[in-house]
Design a protein around this nucleic acid. Structure first.
Lengths: 140, 140
DNA sequence: GCGTAGATGCAACAGAGTTGCATCTAGAAA
DNA sequence: TTTCTAGATGCAACTCTGTTGCATCTACGC
């Protein structure tokens, strides 16, 4: 299912409203690479959606709190998350253009799960994992 | 070998100088949990090392560029890196007190290496991995 | 259509990090 | 030891990002 449609449903379920600016924001996230609040604000204005910066910040925070988007590690950019499962935290990000895609790997998940009982002196609660690479377009 | 000693050598090799503030900074990084530039600045002043904030920023940047410290994911805090190998990027961070420790796992490294040839449409260059958990002291 | 909880706009603020430039000094060389 | 200089530091001003408080507006359930 399309991200924006799914996200609108989740917003409704969470007692949130569907406003013109939220629609525009969701469409933007769906079609572009991960963007941070400032970039989202710029892009929205470029498209004629004259919203306040603060509102963009608040909406990004809302989407994050509902788990509809995840941050790209080491930046404020967010990427849509379709699956809403633990594995959706695993993504690969293009170091050249910033494009991102989620991936799954049974082997990695298994190896990480095994660590939970083996990290000396620590009780493992979770992990952050992100691959870095070049997307097809940037490789060519 | 102690981190601060090793770091001083690396600085010398890189044509950098050993100043009183660098010594204090390295000792601080060695003995404490990961701290960001602002916290490092506060702590140094508390210890009577009256340096400028800007100098702390510049020194943290220097240490990062030499690979002597790594950032904790999702923050500006840096932790000393003893090994200077790719695996030193793997750390576990206590979500309660912020303490960090590097770890190695053959299984994880193998699984990640296998991904390099399997990520569809991407040429994998590297990865970011960090475990989150509770350290021994915070568990008790 | 109403009423209201939730969303937005606006203004002011807080905090992090950067830049430019003058001054100082660690460390090498004489 | 003294001298020299690239590299380090201090200081001031600035930019950029993100936050808070409050008044106004509106999506949407009734």
């Amino acid at each position: 299912m399309r991200f924006s449609v799914q996200a609108e449903e989740a917003l409704r379920r969470g007692g949130r409203r569907i406003t013109p600016m939220r629609r525009a924001l969701l469409l933007l996230l769906e079609e572009k690479k991960p963007l941070g609040p400032r970039e989202l604000h710029r892009e929205l204005r470029r498209r004629g959606v004259l919203v306040d910066r603060v509102s963009v910040y608040r909406n990004v925070a809302t989407l994050l709190s509902l788990g509809l988007v995840h941050r790209v590690l080491g930046s404020t950019a967010v990427r849509p998350c379709a699956q809403r499962s633990p594995s959706c935290h695993h993504a690969i990000v293009c170091t050249s253009c910033g494009a991102a895609r989620e991936f799954r790997s049974g082997a990695v998940e298994k190896a990480l799960a095994a660590l939970r009982v083996r990290a000396p002196g620590f009780v493992v609660q979770g992990h952050l994992l992100e691959l870095r690479g070049l997307c097809q377009r940037c490789t060519a």
